[in-house]
Design a protein around this nucleic acid. Structure first.
Lengths: 190, 190
DNA sequence: TGTACATCAGTGAACGCGCGTTCACTGATGTAC
DNA sequence: TGTACATCAGTGAACGCGCGTTCACTGATGTAC
C-alpha cells in the first residue's frame, strides 16, 4: 500500500486543503478528523502519517486558509491607484459573495473566536496572516507617513473582520447587507 | 428531592449564568453540559428539567451574556456629553481588562464565529443585542441625522468587535495593545 | 542492471473517553378535599 | 386547618455515538549491494 513520495506529498496537501475548507465551514472543534480524511479520500487511520496531532493540522490549515484573503486583497488592490486599491480591497472583502462562502474566505472572520482559544502555533500563523493583510492595506493608504498608514490599516482590517463576522450572525438579510455596505463606505471615504 | 418553585427558578438562573460564562471562556461546542451542571452545583441529569436542549440553552445564554457589553457601554456613555459618551464607551469596550476577561465580556467578540453557525434562536438573540449596542453608540453621535448616526454606529460596533477579537488572537502583546489603542483612537476622532 | 530487504503510506479495528439525551427513581412541594 | 395524593426538581445510571489517538498489518516504493 505504500505510496511514492510524490503521491504522499499530494495526499498531505489534500488533507490540508480539506481541513482549511471544513474548519471554515463547520468550525474547528465541530470538525472531526474522520470527516476530514473521508473528504480527502482516505480512511482516518492514516492521518498520523502526515500530521503530529489535530492541533498541528489546525495551525497549518489556518496558515493555508489565510492565503485566500491575502490573495483576494492583493489581487483587488493590484494595478490600482492608492485610493482605488483600498476601495477595491474593501469591496471584495466585504462583498456578499465573500459573506456567503465562508469555506473559501477569510479564516479570521470564519474562525476568529475559535482561533483566539487555539494553541500558540495557530495563533502565530493567524498573527502573521493578519499582519500581511495589514501591510497590503497600509500600502494602499497614500496620504500618510508609513507608521500612520499602518495604524490606520490595523483598524481598517479589524473593521472588515468585525463587519463580515456580524454580517454572518445577523438574521435579517437587509441588516446583513447594510453592515457590509456601510463598513465598505466608511473604509472608502475614511 | 423536589425543590420549591422559587428554588427551581434560582437553579435555572444559576445554570444560565454558568453557561453564559463557560461558553465565553471555552467556546460553545467545546463546553459540555456535564461541566456546566457541575459548575452550577448539580448533576447533569437534571438539565432537561430546565431546558429543552443545548441549543435552547445556547440561545438564552447568548441573550444573557449580551447584557454585559450593553450595560458596560450604557454605563460608560451615561451622563457624558455626546462626544464624550462615545469616547468612554469605546475606551471601556476596547480596554485590556475587557480583552483579558472574555468570560465576563461581549459574546459577539468571544463567540462571534461560533454564533454565526448557531441556530435561528441564538442568532436572533445576537442580532437584538447587537442592535441595542448600535443604538447606544448611535445615541452618542450627535452631529448627524439619526439614520446617518445609525450607519456610523453599525460600523463603529463592528470595528470594536473585530478589534477585540483580533487583540485576543494575536500572539504579540505589544501588537494586541496597539490594535485596541488604534481602534479606540480611530473611533474617538472619527 | 537485478535482486533482497527495509521503509513507510494507507487500512481498518480498537482504545478510552466525553458528548447530548433519556429514564426509573426519590422525596419534598404543592394542591384538592 | 389537616390529610391524602399528584407533581416534579434533582439524582445517578445508562443509551448510542463520535471523538482523537494507537496499533498490527499490507504491500508497493525506495535503497543497498
Amino acid at each position: 500500500m505504500r505510496k511514492s513520495k510524490h503521491e504522499a506529498a499530494k495526499t498531505r496537501e489534500r488533507i490540508l486543503r480539506a481541513a482549511a475548507a471544513e474548519f471554515r465551514r463547520k468550525g474547528i472543534v465541530a470538525t472531526g478528523l474522520s470527516d476530514l480524511m473521508t473528504a480527502a479520500g482516505l480512511t482516518h487511520g492514516g492521518f498520523y502519517k502526515h500530521f503530529e496531532s489535530k492541533d498541528q493540522l489546525v495551525a497549518e490549515a489556518c496558515a493555508e486558509a489565510l492565503e485566500s484573503p491575502i490573495e483576494m486583497m492583493a489581487a483587488a488592490a493590484s494595478g490600482k491607484t492608492r485610493g482605488g486599491g483600498l476601495k477595491a480591497a474593501a469591496a471584495t472583502y466585504l462583498s456578499t459573495e465573500h459573506r456567503d462562502a465562508p469555506a473559501d474566505g477569510c479564516p479570521l472572520a470564519a474562525l476568529g473566536s475559535e482561533i483566539a482559544r487555539c494553541d500558540g502555533k495557530t495563533r502565530v500563523a493567524a498573527t502573521e496572516g493578519f499582519l500581511r493583510l495589514v501591510d497590503i492595506i497600509a500600502g494602499q493608504i497614500g496620504k500618510a507617513p508609513p507608521n500612520v498608514a499602518r495604524h490606520q490599516a490595523l483598524v481598517a482590517v479589524s473593521t472588515m473582520i468585525g463587519a463580515l463576522t456580524m454580517s454572518r450572525i445577523v438574521t435579517d438579510p437587509k441588516l446583513s447587507d447594510e453592515i457590509l455596505h456601510q463598513a465598505q463606505k466608511h473604509l472608502t471615504q475614511g
